[in-house]
Write a protein that binds this DNA or RNA. Structure first.
Lengths: 226, 226
DNA sequence: ATTACTAAAAAACGAGTAA
DNA sequence: TTTACTCGTTTTTTAGTAA
């Protein structure tokens, strides 16, 4: 069964008070909450138990359940997601750890072919270098994959004497609620979906007093154009 | 498709910012958020549109969506439910309008066969009369159906000279955060699931300064025994 | 590039029912 | 009373593909 559906059932059980104690949960009346038949309800509870989301036992022939820590973690993540959707609709908020890049960002950012286009679309020439952020939460990684697919501001690739440079996309971002910058996605990249790259007019770490290993937060607000 | 599942998709769209403006939502990348294939995503968006939850249009070959008022109402209800589950797990909070009953409550409540048992289980003899509350929100009505099924404190039926009196169940409740009382469910009742009956040691309306037509709130905390 | 139809496979569902 | 199995039916899903 799909996880997002399982979670809605966990919410129902949480509401019954199963978050911190065993509660009586006869399938025949839980079925009214779940909106399923008694049989399907039994099946769902068994599946939740098999997946380690609930502890289920039968006393005097009726089911009692309590949510596991695993379920509570899953619920917390879901609630966090919902809170974000309610409070900051249209915003992608990221949090991750600053990691050392390979230094190749500086090389690319200094190419006039990119610099001109950045100036035209973002209003400034970026500092020659990118800041790499390592995402660890699964939610962040999904968000990164999705944002990448959305095709923000398109920066065309070009070729100089020696080689070709691929196209990139950028999304204006606010870093640590202070500094303007942008998320940068290179068409061809060596990084996986757990790394996200930032650029700005200024040297980000210096400007914000941060160093490698520090936690950094930033948000991308989706514009009307993408 | 099940409503609870539809709502999770609406939350995803809300997060994208579709709550107040048309947002670009190409099925191929929305599919990453939904956790479905491109084809299923297309089908889900079509269904959401058919059900009146989103307005969907195609510009230059890609889908743009905006949530309808109907969807926002549905989401608000869901959020309210979740907030309740998080803040008051194990509690059933009711809100409804005080309505005039048929006066038959007073007759039943004055029967010694019931009075003795109420005293033993609730610790007091109830005021001879019941307060009828009319529930209008669908969530409240569902909650009422569920609570009724849960079998709280069991009060046995009995017979006197003339007739038999059916069994009832009660759940201790706190009325308007002040007055102790109980929800009463008669085994045989003439009321539908949109009416819920309250009893208390005192005359509830008098004690709380309420009259017919006023809004009343109360909560039932599920005990460890049911 | 998209969207979304068709068709076949997979998953979920509930009635009947045993324990 | 319960729970939960079997099994036939319905619903949901995705690959392939046309537009």
């Amino acid at each position: 069964m799909k996880k997002r559906l399982l979670i809605t059932y966990l919410i129902d059980l949480l509401k019954l008070g199963a978050g911190d104690r065993l509660v009586k949960a006869p399938t025949i009346y839980i079925s009214h909450i779940f909106g399923l038949s008694q049989q399907s309800t039994s099946r769902v509870l068994t599946e939740l138990s098999d997946l380690g989301y609930i502890h289920k036992e039968i006393r005097d022939g009726t089911v009692w359940v309590i949510l596991t820590d695993r379920a509570m973690e899953e619920l917390e993540m879901f609630f966090k997601y919902i809170d974000g959707a309610r409070k900051y609709p249209g915003e992608f908020i990221f949090e991750g750890e600053i990691v050392k890049g390979l230094g190749e960002g500086a090389y690319y950012m200094s190419k006039p072919g990119y610099k001109r286009q950045f100036y035209r679309t973002l209003g400034y020439e970026p500092y020659p270098g990118t800041l790499n952020v390592k995402l660890s939460e699964p939610l962040m990684i999904t968000q990164n994959k999705v944002l990448r697919k959305m095709k923000g501001i398109y920066i065309k690739g070009f070729r100089d004497e020696s080689r070709t440079f691929g196209s990139v996309q950028v999304y204006p971002a606010i870093i640590m609620e202070k500094l303007e910058g942008a998320v940068l996605y290179a068409r061809r990249t060596i990084y996986g979906p757990d790394i996200i790259e930032l650029i700005s007019e200024y040297y980000i770490k210096g400007e914000l007093g941060l160093k490698d290993g520090d936690i950094i937060r930033f948000k991308v607000k989706l514009s009307e154009n993408y």
